[in-house]
Design a protein around this nucleic acid. Structure first.
Lengths: 115, 115
DNA sequence: TTTATATATAAGTAAATGGTTATATAAATG
DNA sequence: CATTTATATAACCATTTACTTATATATAAA
């Protein structure tokens, strides 16, 4: 592992907490592959829009995701320039590819303009 | 990475939460090298004995540490047989060796019978 | 067998967390 | 400009968290 990816124990604890919510953890796993807009998350997670927005706000405030506005939508993607990119990948790499919840989410995914 | 170390997203989120407290994270890093008794942690962390005991109880209840009783002391060590051993190592490997808090702890370490 | 030591547990509490409903904002569309 | 759509934010609330103090337990030592 690249030494530059190592952080203080307080930072690691902080990032671990940010990723310790199952919704946020799966959002991170999803955006590590491609970008998603808020309405897609709302459909996939079957959660309220404010709840999703608040999770995204937390992920953004800790620098884990980036937001880009396009038309009426805001797209979120992994911030690969984050100091935490090392620990983020380390954690999501430990999620099984057969994770039931993740597979369910992917199956519910719809193109943006369908929402 | 060994596929057998992969867990569900809910499990990973759960273990991330257990390790998201700075005290517990550093306890895990310490016991990954050698065993410690409760009174050593109390001295090193300069925290109350009940607080340390409660953190250890949580780590033990999630299977991350093992307890062995010897005389009047209870020694805690990393449970290397844990399902979570992969994610545990992944996380603590991201803590810098120069972490200030960790170095402070090590400097305060005293042999058991000195307590 | 009393006393000291190491640790656990219980009960209480302030702060943080993650949801809810209601409302604000900002872009697209008629 | 008025309305719809996508998203954010605010206010509220129940639950969880991590500490505190007080007490229980179990081993060691006197």
């Amino acid at each position: 592992m690249n030494q530059s990816y190592r952080l203080s124990s307080v930072e690691i604890a902080t990032y671990a907490k940010v990723m310790s919510d199952p919704t946020r953890l799966l959002i991170i796993k999803l955006v590590s592959k491609k970008e998603y807009c808020v309405c897609q998350f709302v459909e996939m997670f079957e959660m309220s829009q404010p709840s999703i927005s608040q999770h995204l706000k937390k992920l953004k405030s800790f620098g884990l995701v980036e937001e880009t506005r396009r038309g009426q939508w805001r797209f979120y993607s992994l911030n690969t320039a984050s100091d935490a990119i090392g620990i983020v990948h380390a954690i999501i790499n430990h999620i099984s590819d057969q994770d039931e919840r993740y597979i369910e989410l992917i199956n519910k995914e719809r193109p943006v303009d369908c929402g």
